[in-house]
């Protein structure tokens, strides 16, 4: 894993318009933006940390807590919505005890609602890390989560 400095060095020009790309690179590498990272970026780009924090909280993709071992993305696009994905979201929340942008206490699961994943005919759709699940039902979701849980036991 490269350290933060190596990521920063890829941006030799201290310009504000590098801010989002820098943060994206950091998040790609570390999974989230830590306070330490924000402070370092601030020093590097000569920006107050509050400006970085303000910017990062504006955009949906930036997160400030680590992802779970299994990061679940559930599509909340229009088509999945009309295919009653709310039942699936409710089931996930119930099953995991967390909501959008949260992580379970044991660090196993984290949940993220996304916009359209481009599989509208197959909704409701979700992804666990890079594995996709389509045509979800309440039962199917429960099974999927249970199977991941049992893998950990």
């Amino acid at each position: 894993m490269p350290n933060l400095e190596e990521i920063l060095e890829k941006y030799p020009f201290v310009q504000r318009d590098n801010l989002i790309p820098v943060l994206q690179d950091i998040q790609d590498e570390f999974g989230y933006l830590s306070e330490e990272a924000i402070v370092k970026v601030g020093k590097y780009l000569n920006l107050p940390t509050v400006k970085i924090y303000g910017l990062a909280t504006f955009y949906h993709h930036f997160r400030f807590i680590a992802k779970g071992k299994y990061h679940i993305k559930i599509c909340n696009g229009t088509s999945c919505h009309v295919n009653s994905n709310i039942l699936i979201i409710n089931e996930l929340e119930k099953k995991l005890g967390i909501k959008d942008e949260e992580i379970t206490k044991d660090g196993l699961f984290s949940l993220e609602e996304t916009t359209c994943m481009a599989a509208c005919g197959e909704g409701p759709v979700m992804a666990v890390n890079d594995k996709y699940f389509t045509h979800l039902t309440i039962e199917k979701v429960a099974e999927i989560i249970d199977s991941y849980k049992s893998m950990e036991e």
Binding site: I38, P48, Y53, G54
Partner: peptide, 27 residues
């Protein structure tokens, strides 16, 4: 000094200090 900035957006928009700390621990 830049103690404050906008935080999040939409109905969650707020004005906060860096990392949403209490004022006394901010700059």
């Amino acid at each position: 000094v830049s103690t404050f900035d906008f935080y999040k957006r939409g109905n969650k928009t707020a004005i906060v200090t860096s990392m949403n700390k209490d004022l006394n621990f901010s700059n």
